[in-house]
Each structure stands twice: as C-alpha cells, then as structure tokens.
Amino acid sequence: MPALPDIPLPAAIRSRFVEDINGLRIHVLEAGFETKGRPCLLLLHGFPELAYSWRKVMPALAAAGYHVIAPDQRGYGRTTGWDADYDGDLAPFRLTNLVRDALGLVSAFGYRSVDAVIGHDFGSSVAAWCALVRPDVFRSVALMSAPFAGPPPLPFDTADKPAAPKRDDPVHRRLAALPRPRKHYQWYYSTREANADMHHASQGVHDFLRGYYHHKSADWKANEPTPLQSWTAGELANLPTYYVMDLAKNMAETVAPEMPSKEAIAANTWLPDRELAFYSAEYERTGFQGGLQWYRCGTSGAFIPELQTWSGRSIDVPSCFIAGKQDWGTYQRPGVFEAMQKTACTNMTGVHLIDGAGHWVQQEQPDEVSRLLLEFLRQAGRDPGCG
C-alpha cells in the first residue's frame, strides 16, 4: 500500500493501527494515551464519516482524564480487511459483528470494560447494540443523532393462528406513486448504483460531500424538524430530500442544488475546506460501498432473526441522547424517539437537542457536545477526576 498522507489532527490526537481485530486491521485515532490506567471511552462514527469526525471532542474528553479511542469502523477509511464487493457476503457488516469489532478493539487495548460507548448516526445503532448485548463491558452509552427503539420483536401467540403472509412494505410503492414521486434514502443506498453515483459524482467527491454535509447541517435554514405521525408515504414526504429523495434523482443530484456559496464555504468554521479535503481524499480512495453495506444489512431484513434473539431486552446501563435541534434524524422514523425514552432505555439520564446544530452535532457544536458528554459521565458515576 502506498504511504497515506498525514491526517490534519489536533496535537492531542495520534493515529495508529491495531492488528488482527475480528479479521480487520483497524485504524484508530487516540487521545489521552500519555498515561496508563485511565478509564476508556469508545467513539463510533456514522455515514459518510470517519474516526476523524470526533477530532473536535476527543481532546476535551482526554483532558478530563479519559483514554479516548475512535476507530474507522468496518467498511471505512484506513481500516482494512473488509470486502466492498456488492455481490459479496453481507454478514460481516451486520450489527452483531460490528459489536464484535468493538469488543475486540477495547480488549486489544487491555480493557475489560469501558466507561462509555458513544455513537453518532449509524454508529449510534452500533453503540446501542453494544450496551444491549454486553452491558458488563459497555457500562454506559451515549446515543447521538439516531435514537434507538430496541430490538425487533418476536412473533407472539401465533401457534394456533394461520401463518401471516410475508409481504413487502407498501410504503415504497406509495412513495413512488405520490404526485411528487419519492424514494427512501436507505433503500436507495442499498442499490447497486448508489456507490458509483457518489464516488463518480459529476461535481466530484469533494463538492458532493460539501453539499451533503451542508444540506444536513444547521447551516441549511430549511432544517426545522417536527415529529412525524406515522410511517406512511404522506408523512414521510415531509422529510427533506436527503432522507426521502425525488424518485428520479440520485444522492449526488439531490444535494447539488443545495451547494453553499463560495462565501459560505469560506466562512464555515465547523468544517473548513482543509478539513473536508481529508474526508474527500479518503472517500476518493475507498469509495462509499463499505458504509453502504451496513444499510443493505438493514433493508434486506436478512439479519432480523438474529437480532430477535434479544427481543424484549432493554438497555439498562446509564444512557443519554444528544442531537442537533435542527436535525431531522431524530424524527425520521416515527415513534422511535419516544420508544427510546419509554421502553428501549430504562436508565436514560438526559435528552439534549442542541440549538445551532444539525445532523453533524459533534462537529457543528463540539464544545456543547463535550460538556454534555462529561456531564453525563459524571451523572453515570464515570468521572475519573483529573487523569
């Protein structure tokens, strides 16, 4: 492999590799490594992001006394050992194997447990499953920008009833039949074309990512989310086009009209072009298919039976939820935000919607996210003092 360029990181963070973790060579960003014996925090990114997405909060967490590790997850960045073949085996990308990746990584660092697993976007789902499956290892959990509804239920009291017919969710046909035909982004991300649409976007990967990050941020002033009432085509059509797309457009075409002006890009402080350039260089090198495999695991339904193993279980370790107030992701699946607080998490100490942040909350408002995470860790009894 040719030498990879240096990562533009704060001085408190270093880049390294950890070998032989569940078949992977994992690239990790690490802070608070200078002294031994610190309690550990594991940070899990989402799509289309990288461990780099945590660069703005890692120094504050390390300064509070923690050893902070943030991997490029399976399918992403500089982590290798995964297969991005669309026709390959999806099983390595299923949620339970992503939990196994996390377990293997913290074990390799010499930890029997971590004080918290903190996940953003799709990483929030992995963090939730970590806390559900291994609460002895993941002693608290912070979910960010993607609420958790709990494990899928098992069919109940069916022995003396006729077998229910299996059928596809009609919402996709109904979205396509709307006066303004639409499609759901997760099912688009599961198509064979999605990777090439983004990797070979007509505007280039850099400008595609600029438009995508802008569209889902608080900088896009039309992001004024409200709860949806039901999983129906009419309700889902209220979501912005980055979630419920125009039927005839791919994602690169969807975000292109929302590209910020040169002046707005120059004024952006939470993702200046020199930092975006690292994301775009990594995705130009790897493509997007590794991350898209995660969506395919979900939309295929193939791994629901495995997840039903934990049907009826809740997250009982201390938990919190943090998201941007301008983030539609909190509400994109009707009822999940409420279910997280009522049934899925039995020890939720706080729900925080940060004004001035959209979906990329730990990048848009890193100081407030850091403050809330440290407050949560204190409430959960995970305060290390001054390391």
Results as ranks from 00 to 15, higher is better:
222 A>W: 12
116 A>V: 01
229 Q>W: 12
27 H>I: 05
118 I>C: 00
40 C>N: 03
232 T>A: 07
60 A>D: 13
387 G>E: 10
150 G>K: 00
365 Q>Y: 11
237 A>S: 15
337 F>V: 03
105 L>Y: 06
344 A>F: 07
186 Q>Y: 10
305 P>K: 02
8 P>C: 10
23 G>D: 03
174 R>E: 12
373 L>E: 00
385 G>Y: 08
298 G>D: 13
68 V>H: 05
193 E>I: 15
369 V>Q: 05
210 R>M: 11
277 A>W: 06
40 C>D: 00
148 F>M: 10
29 L>M: 06
317 V>E: 02
110 G>Q: 01
372 L>I: 01
218 A>F: 00
181 P>K: 12
206 H>N: 14
336 V>Y: 10
269 T>R: 15
279 Y>R: 07
98 L>T: 00
291 G>A: 02
355 D>I: 10
243 Y>E: 14
17 F>W: 13
292 L>P: 03
103 L>H: 00
209 L>M: 11
276 L>S: 08
136 D>M: 02
333 R>V: 15
1 M>H: 14
162 P>Y: 13
218 A>Q: 02
63 A>I: 12
12 A>T: 13
220 W>F: 15
90 L>V: 03
10 P>Q: 13
347 N>M: 04
43 L>C: 12
34 E>N: 13
364 E>W: 11
99 V>N: 03
99 V>H: 00
138 F>Y: 06
38 R>A: 07
48 P>A: 01
15 S>W: 13
242 Y>P: 08
203 Q>W: 10
177 A>Y: 12
383 D>Q: 08
249 K>N: 13
191 T>K: 02
124 S>L: 05
252 A>R: 06
268 N>F: 11
338 E>M: 10
332 Q>T: 11
70 A>K: 01
312 G>P: 06
380 A>L: 05
74 R>T: 01
122 F>N: 02
114 V>G: 03
75 G>I: 03
170 P>N: 05
340 M>A: 07
144 M>R: 08
348 M>V: 03
224 E>S: 13
114 V>P: 00
183 K>G: 06
